[in-house]
Design a protein around this nucleic acid. Structure first.
Lengths: 240, 240
DNA sequence: AATTTGATCTGTACGGTGTACAAATGGTGT
DNA sequence: ACACCATTTGTACACCGTACAGATCAAATT
C-alpha cells in the first residue's frame, strides 16, 4: 500500500525484508531439507543476488537464529496462561503445541538445538513456565530447575523424534512411521537383545504422541506439586 | 608387523583402516569443531587423497554414523550392570558416564542427534536400561517406555548443554561456564521477565552436573519403582 | 535546486566442501 | 605369466559462505 511509515534510511528502497528472508529460508527448509536452505537459495527465492542477503543479516548463523526465534514466536502463550485450567494440563498443552509447531518444520529442529537458545522468545518461554510453576506452589529455585527439566524433555523428545526421520522433508503420518519402525525392529536378534526384541511393539511407538505425553506425565509426577516437596529437594545432592 | 592374517582381498594393501578414519575425524572434531571434520581434512590427516576415504565409507554420512557408534561403544556397561548397586544409582552412574563420554567431544554431540541412533551400540544401551528396569520390577512395556524417557532426558540434556557452547572446541570448566552464564543473565530486563531475572543464579547453573542429576532424580521419582504403579500406567491416555 | 552522503544491490572472485569419473597401481588367484 | 580387481590418485563439477569493489538511488545537507 501507500503507507511508508517512518523510514529514516538513506539509499534505494530495500528489495526485501528480514521477515521475507526468514520465510524464504523456512520454505526451502520444508521443501528441500537443511541443504536447500542456503544463502544462495534464499536469495534466489526472494529475487536478489546471493550477497544481498548480507544486507539483512551479518552471516548465515544470524539467519538461523532468526528462524529459530520466528518459530518460537508462533507458539501461542494464551491457552497456556489460562488460570482456569489445572497447571499440569497447561504444561501439557504447551508441550503439545511446541511439538506441533516444531515438528511441522523438521529441518528447523536441527538448527534449533545446534546453537544456544538465548533469544527473547526462548526467555519468554522460560518465563511462562516459571509463572505456571510458581502459581503451583514451587519455590523460585525449584520453579527454575523444573522449568529447565521440562525444556530438556520437550526439546530432547522433539530432537530425537525428527532425528529419526533422517533428511525427510515432511514427517509421514504417525501410524505410518510406527509401522515402519516396527518393521525395522523385527530384525533385532533376540539372542543378544532379548528384552528389546520382546518390546519391539513398544519401541516402535517411541515417536508417538502417546509416548510423548506418557513421558511428560512421568516428569510432572517426579516434579510433584506440593510446596513441601519442592522445598525438600531445593538443594541438590553433591555429585559423588 | 609381518603378520598378514587372512586377507582374501585383491589389489594393493590398504593405506589405512576404518578405525583410523574414525579416529582422525574425532581428532579433527575436537581440535577444530565440526567444520574441521571434513572428508578432505580426514584424508590429509591419514595421509591419503580425499577420495580414498570413499574406499572405507560410502559417503560422509556413513563416517558420521561410525563416529557415533565409536563413541557409544566406549561407554562402560560393567559398572552399570553390577547388581549390588541399587538400580536408581546404577542409572545415575550410566547417565553420568554418558554425559562425561559425550561432552568430552562436544562437536560430536551435534552429529549424534543429527541422525537416527539405530546402531547396535544404541540398541545395546536400550537393552541395558531395560535390564535394570525389569530387575526393578517394571513391566516389559513400562521398562521400554521408561527407557526411552531416560534416553530422551540424557541426550536432551547433553544436547542443550553443548549447544550452549556454540562452536567451542572444548568445554571450559563448569564453574567458569556458570559464571559466564550468570554474567549474561544480568542483562535480563526484570520488567518483562521478572521471574527469570530473579532466578538468574539458578538458570546460570542449568549446565551444571548438579542440575543434570537433579533432573534425572525427578525423572526417576516420576517413574516410581513399584510394579503396581508400573502396571497402572501401562496404557497411556489417548491424546485429546 | 544542487550536491553530498551512505545504504543497498550486483558482479566477480576466492577458498572451501562432497563426491563422481577415469586412469594408474599393485597384490592375488589362476 | 597372466588376468583380475580392490585400491589409490588426478582431475573435475557443482555447490557453498562470503569478501571486495563498483554502480545505483533516495534522503540529508547545503
Amino acid at each position: 500500500m501507500t503507507e511508508q511509515g517512518k523510514s529514516f534510511r538513506r539509499g534505494p528502497r530495500r528489495a526485501s525484508t528480514e521477515e521475507e528472508v526468514v520465510e524464504a529460508a523456512l520454505g526451502l527448509l520444508d521443501e528441500g531439507g537443511v541443504s536447500a536452505a542456503s544463502i544462495r537459495g534464499i536469495a534466489a527465492r526472494i529475487g536478489v543476488a546471493p550477497n544481498a542477503v548480507y544486507t539483512y543479516f551479518p552471516d548465515k548463523a544470524a539467519v538461523i537464529k532468526a528462524i529459530v526465534e520466528h518459530l518460537l514466536g508462533q507458539v501461542d502463550h494464551a491457552v497456556f496462561a489460562d488460570p482456569d485450567v489445572p497447571w499440569r494440563r497447561r504444561i501439557e498443552l504447551l508441550a503439545l503445541e511446541l511439538r506441533e509447531s516444531l515438528t511441522a518444520h523438521p529441518g528447523a529442529v536441527g538448527l534449533m538445538i545446534g546453537g544456544p537458545m538465548d533469544g527473547p522468545r526462548a526467555l519468554a518461554l522460560n518465563e511462562r513456565l516459571m509463572e505456571v510453576l510458581s502459581g503451583a506452589g514451587f519455590s523460585p529455585t525449584d520453579a527454575a530447575q523444573a522449568s529447565y527439566l521440562l525444556i530438556v524433555y520437550v526439546f530432547g523428545s522433539i530432537a530425537l523424534d525428527v532425528a529419526e526421520l533422517g533428511d525427510v522433508r515432511r514427517a509421514p503420518p504417525e501410524a505410518e512411521r510406527i509401522a515402519a519402525r516396527y518393521a525395522g525392529f523385527s530384525s533385532i536378534p533376540a539372542e543378544t537383545y532379548p528384552l528389546s526384541a520382546a518390546a519391539a511393539h513398544v519401541m516402535a511407538r517411541y515417536v508417538s504422541t502417546d509416548q510423548y505425553l506418557w513421558g511428560l506425565r512421568r516428569v510432572l509426577d517426579g516434579l510433584g506439586h506440593s510446596p513441601t516437596r519442592a522445598v525438600a529437594s531445593a538443594m541438590p545432592a553433591p555429585v559423588g
